[in-house]
Amino acid sequence: MQRVNMIMAESPGLITICLLGYLLSAECTVFLDHENANKILNRPKRYNSGKLEEFVQGNLERECMEEKCSFEEAREVFENTERTTEFWKQYVDGDQCESNPCLNGGSCKDDINSYECWCPFGFEGKNCELDVTCNIKNGRCEQFCKNSADNKVVCSCTEGYRLAENQKSCEPAVPFPCGRVSVSQTSKLTRAETVFPDVDYVNSTEAETILDNITQSTQSFNDFTRVVGGEDAKPGQFPWQVVLNGKVDAFCGGSIVNEKWIVTAAHCVETGVKITVVAGEHNIEETEHTEQKRNVIRIIPHHNYNAAINKYNHDIALLELDEPLVLNSYVTPICIADKEYTNIFLKFGSGYVSGWGRVFHKGRSALVLQYLRVPLVDRATCLRSTKFTIYNNMFCAGFHEGGRDSCQGDSGGPHVTEVEGTSFLTGIISWGEECAMKGKYGIYTKVSRYVNWIKEKTKLT
């Protein structure tokens, strides 16, 4: 034993070699072989497995989906700052455009905790909710729209109204504003409101030439003092309507412009014939205590009207009353817009006519005020429907199939267009061939041609 100890002390290297040989010859039971080890760690190889990531292109799944990435790591994937920024906006807080917040056709661009709407022409605001041009839906104005110097929408209202708090709607500024039905039992019968379409306001006024200088022999019209197929109006439903009495009662109609003036057809009036105007009328054979009678003290036909040349060209006249009318729910003026808007309103496509005229061709006159909704007829169809001249200051309205029309005794009465609950004068009943005849239409004086003249002559002093 002493000898062994001496050998170990003198030859430590020998001992180490012996131990190493023993270990190498022993069977290893701690580690699995290569094949079995792979069965336990069965993990798919990654895209760049075996390579240094710093030297390969980034992978979106590896960089940002398996674990949260930084902007720089995302930049490695896209290799483009702009594309990385677009991805980053949604990656950080989701897609803010998912709810489609942009209105009126706006395009949404996502941002971090926010979004941006790219608005089409005519709109602005956070969600493109603000109209900035009158060309689109009248700028959301209830009545009139004008573009300011910086191309912003400025709404306005006709006389007797003021802008509401929203700067879009119009509200009454006087007790009985024009064009409004205020009798409670008839307010439910107000005709369907007309909503502004998209309009090209630059070209809204037709490029028409008034044929002022045409000389033409007097034409022989049949029954051209021209509501057939209409309905009984309720008291106060058309408070701007008046009836004219002269040699015979209810020979023509008219509309209240203001307390002192009536507008009617020029062919209705004769110099030297006494005319009485009755406002607030409903049943011409009954006294309903809503009527107001006034005498006409002055007749002003349009300066281009000449019955000797043509009885229905420039067929418009103004009547001055001896005493002002007292405005109330049964006696209310009709609204008159400017030339541009009167023309736009007419193009809405349908209007209402009213009167006490004959209820059928050569038949009896109506006792109760009649009204009828009539569609506008395109000019080409209008011209083809008659052998008589249709001037540019006239328009056609009615039904091709016949059966409904204005008729004798309705002449001078109103053709009105309702705009968001307020009625505007767009025409004056003038003439036609018979009444409600198939293929024939009622012919009306186009008020847009005469609004400046009306307003100039009827100013209240």
Results as ranks from 00 to 15, higher is better:
122 G>V: 02
388 F>V: 14
329 S>V: 05
377 V>P: 02
191 R>Y: 07
243 V>A: 12
233 A>G: 08
113 N>K: 09
339 K>V: 09
24 L>M: 10
155 C>M: 01
247 K>S: 10
73 E>P: 15
371 Y>G: 14
283 N>H: 11
67 E>Y: 04
180 R>M: 06
210 I>A: 12
148 S>T: 13
16 T>M: 14
344 I>N: 08
11 S>W: 07
363 G>T: 14
158 T>L: 08
290 T>D: 04
204 S>D: 10
272 G>N: 12
307 A>C: 05
356 W>A: 03
124 E>A: 06
323 E>R: 07
406 S>N: 14
458 T>Y: 02
328 N>M: 02
447 V>W: 01
414 P>D: 03
418 E>K: 11
414 P>Q: 11
102 C>N: 00
173 A>P: 00
242 V>C: 03
254 G>R: 01
136 I>P: 04
363 G>N: 06
387 K>W: 05
359 V>P: 05
376 L>A: 04
181 V>I: 11
432 G>V: 09
322 D>T: 03
460 L>E: 12
315 D>K: 00
46 R>K: 11
112 I>T: 08
277 V>D: 01
315 D>C: 01
396 C>N: 01
193 E>H: 11
269 V>K: 02
436 A>M: 15
194 T>R: 11
445 T>G: 02
441 Y>N: 03
100 N>T: 09
221 F>Q: 08
75 R>K: 15
92 V>E: 15
260 K>I: 04
194 T>Q: 12
328 N>T: 12
310 N>F: 04
58 G>A: 08
94 G>D: 09
56 V>F: 06
83 R>P: 15
143 Q>I: 00
44 P>V: 13
243 V>T: 10
353 V>G: 02
415 H>D: 01
320 E>A: 03
259 E>N: 06
105 G>Y: 03
26 A>I: 10
57 Q>Y: 06
230 G>Q: 07
260 K>D: 02
274 K>M: 08
370 Q>D: 03
249 D>F: 05
345 F>V: 03
257 V>E: 00
29 T>R: 08
102 C>K: 00
367 L>M: 05
264 T>R: 01
141 C>T: 00
75 R>V: 15
55 F>V: 15
410 D>T: 12
196 F>Q: 09
172 P>M: 06
451 V>Q: 03
396 C>Q: 00
305 Y>M: 02
165 E>M: 11
245 N>W: 06
149 A>D: 14
123 F>Y: 12
221 F>V: 07
287 T>K: 08
235 P>R: 08
159 E>K: 07
15 I>S: 04
320 E>V: 00
131 D>L: 15
11 S>N: 10
253 G>T: 11
99 S>I: 05
147 N>C: 05
411 S>M: 13
300 I>M: 08
87 F>H: 15
255 S>Y: 02
23 L>K: 02
258 N>P: 00
113 N>F: 04
125 G>R: 00
313 N>F: 08
245 N>C: 04
30 V>K: 15
449 R>P: 15
296 V>L: 02
409 G>E: 06
215 T>E: 06
165 E>A: 06
79 E>T: 15
57 Q>G: 14
455 K>A: 06
262 I>V: 12
378 D>T: 07
413 G>H: 12
374 V>W: 04
305 Y>S: 02
127 N>S: 06
